[in-house]
Computed example of a mutant assay.
Amino acid sequence: MKLYIYDHCPYCVKARMIFGLKNVPVELVVLLNDDEATPTKMIGKKMAPILQKDDSRYLPESMDIVHYIDKLDGKPLLTGQTNAAIGEWLRHVQSYSQHLLIPRIAKAPFDEFATPEARAYFVKKKEALIGPFAEHLAHSPGLIKKISDDLRKLDKLIVQPNAVNGELSEDDINLFPLLRSLTLVAGVEYPSRVRDYRDNMAKQTQINLLSSVAI
């Protein structure tokens, strides 16, 4: 199987997680960010992730891919209950975290930006969506304090480092991608349970954190 992704994309991280958790082999293919033709040829529009299954058919949508792989062997892993408080925390943080993340993603050495054209494509699209990156970067100190405060609230919700609610669930698939993205932001303070959970989940899923290229 092949999984077509962007490395920065949290939806792609969701799809990648289930392969790591279940030790299912998959070939990762990073699309250039300005490559509209390849995904459109596969599924009729530009989006990622896209799974090319063993029968060569294509499956888009991150959670559809997660459920497909999780149930493929008849032994699903994501059997735990979800916690409404985790969903509420994610909705709150996602309401402002993109202003921290997107300008930094645009500067980072992701393979989807291997050409100047691919990076420029991303910048043009995202600045049209959220406004000039320079303005958001100027507000970073306040946003970093805000996310650090919110991570302290998350710390109280984490039950175990290997599963946020004590048993693997869709909450883990939704939470870890954001925590991984936040490692791209220098200066964020992580309480111990959040840090342990993030690091453990990175090992379980075999997905690298972004601390080494933090901005």
Score class of each variant (00 low, 15 high):
207 I>Y: 11
159 V>Q: 05
110 F>T: 11
54 D>L: 09
107 K>H: 13
146 K>G: 07
56 S>M: 14
11 Y>F: 15
156 K>N: 14
41 K>F: 12
118 A>P: 05
129 L>Y: 14
146 K>P: 00
101 L>M: 09
205 T>F: 03
29 V>T: 04
27 E>G: 00
108 A>Y: 01
30 V>F: 10
67 H>R: 15
86 I>V: 08
105 I>K: 04
179 L>M: 07
57 R>L: 15
60 P>W: 10
26 V>R: 06
155 D>Q: 06
81 Q>N: 15
133 F>N: 03
80 G>S: 06
184 L>G: 01
53 K>Y: 06
68 Y>M: 05
158 I>C: 03
169 S>K: 02
57 R>V: 15
2 K>L: 00
148 S>L: 05
74 G>I: 14
196 D>M: 10
138 A>T: 12
211 S>D: 13
164 V>W: 08
205 T>R: 01
144 I>C: 09
207 I>W: 11
129 L>H: 13
23 N>R: 14
111 D>H: 14
43 I>G: 01
138 A>V: 11
205 T>E: 04
29 V>L: 05
57 R>I: 13
36 E>V: 13
85 A>K: 12
89 W>K: 08
21 L>V: 00
174 N>W: 05
139 H>S: 13
215 I>G: 05
82 T>Y: 03
162 N>W: 10
36 E>K: 13
63 M>G: 08
113 F>C: 00
23 N>M: 06
89 W>Y: 12
111 D>F: 04
157 L>F: 08
13 V>T: 03
125 K>S: 14
21 L>W: 11
130 I>A: 10
159 V>H: 05
136 H>T: 00
136 H>P: 06
71 K>L: 13
162 N>K: 14
214 A>C: 10
204 Q>N: 13
113 F>K: 06
100 L>Y: 01
157 L>W: 02
148 S>V: 05
107 K>S: 04
51 L>I: 09
86 I>G: 10
134 A>R: 12
201 M>K: 03
87 G>K: 08
198 R>M: 11
215 I>E: 12
76 P>H: 01
71 K>I: 11
35 D>F: 02
23 N>P: 00
103 P>D: 10
179 L>K: 05
78 L>P: 01
90 L>W: 10
162 N>I: 07
148 S>Q: 11
148 S>A: 11
35 D>M: 10
66 V>E: 01
159 V>F: 01
57 R>T: 15
60 P>L: 11
177 P>I: 09
174 N>Q: 12
51 L>D: 01
59 L>S: 04
